[in-house]
Design a protein around this nucleic acid. Sequence first.
DNA 1: AGGTACATACCGTCTGGTCGGTATTGAGGA
DNA 2: TCCTCAATACCGACCAGACGGTATGTACCT
Lengths: 207, 207
Amino acid sequence: MADQSARRVGRPPSTVDGRTVPERLLGVALKLFAEKGFEGTSVQDVVAAAGVTKGAMYHYFGSKDDLLYEIYGRVLRMQTDRLEKAAAHEGPVEERLHAAAADVVVTTIENLESTTIFFRSLHQLSEEKQKAVRRERRRYHQTFRAMIEEGQASGVFRDDLDADLIVDYFFGSVHHLPMWWKPHGRLSEREIGRSFADLLLASLTSH
Amino acid sequence: MADQSARRVGRPPSTVDGRTVPERLLGVALKLFAEKGFEGTSVQDVVAAAGVTKGAMYHYFGSKDDLLYEIYGRVLRMQTDRLEKAAAHEGPVEERLHAAAADVVVTTIENLESTTIFFRSLHQLSEEKQKAVRRERRRYHQTFRAMIEEGQASGVFRDDLDADLIVDYFFGSVHHLPMWWKPHGRLSEREIGRSFADLLLASLTSH
DNA sequence: AGGTACATACCGTCTGGTCGGTATTGAGGA
DNA sequence: TCCTCAATACCGACCAGACGGTATGTACCT
């Protein structure tokens, strides 16, 4: 029951090929933060690249921090969404885990800029915003861990190692993809995804 | 044949409990950069914490950049040194690899601040200095890879996966330790080291 | 009329870096 | 032995510019 006919007064937002000003701001901020880092990018840089002025930016975002926070939000929502769908599929747990692991690798590579920013600039956020991000992140972590624990309980996976540790182990690899993956390397996104998932499964299923 | 009797003129460096000014500067810079980030720490912060003035810092270091670069240098030298010693040991390759893997986890945790800075602030360095760091880093990578290839060639490890990929996979996990490891967690440095090494070996030796 | 969507001009603060000066030392000559 | 010279090891004052953020104005729409 959202108020579709919400009292809309005032000038409508301007758009350039379908994208509103705040969308454009987030888009260019993503690119610039990934290229030059959060502190290395000034608000002036961002608004210039988006073709607006600071007035516009501070109209939509409370601070430079906020820009970064929104970027995080978008990535987190997307990845959490995909993981939960993958986890909800049918089939044996080792297949679900393999698929989820391979998928997160692929989407991470497809959103490499976001991931770059994520792990490079998290600490620039205010304490409260960091907490919010970590909370959302933990939810993601737990969904993944649940699959491992399921496999351990059913005897498919080794259970002499802590499931949390395994999750951190695997996602360390995933989150470090921006450090070495290059667009035209020998291996495609899919191949990396399959290899990473193979490695994870192998370390879990070997006796 | 180092010139031990080097012409020593001028005032000798001042020391506070055995540590010279540049050593103290690097020490506090390490702490501050890890806490507040490179860009979030001003030169003034650093010199104040070291109990000197900017004059002293710019006497020993060419720039703020330089400070960061030297921090990198110290970590890299230490880790490269340890790895090469571990690789040169005797015994079967799977044992050497296990020991080296466990060792790098332990030393990474023991130098968590350095590692934090390393992967968070590398991009702040000038292009040339980044290249220098990456070159040194590659040498480290290759030493590790050589062990994996040795195991693959002798049939101890699976050889359907690229050795480079496996190195990146494993070191992703290691380099992400600062993101989640806390001093008083359930698992000690040693236990994490052993677990990580186990996971690596398991994924390599399973059929 | 009143709210939205920006643009423009501006501000106080802080930053990395510079520069001239001075205290302190060992080396070498007389 | 004493004195000068040159080099080191800093200190402290300073600067130009950039930074995030704001206050005010105005065009536009319902």
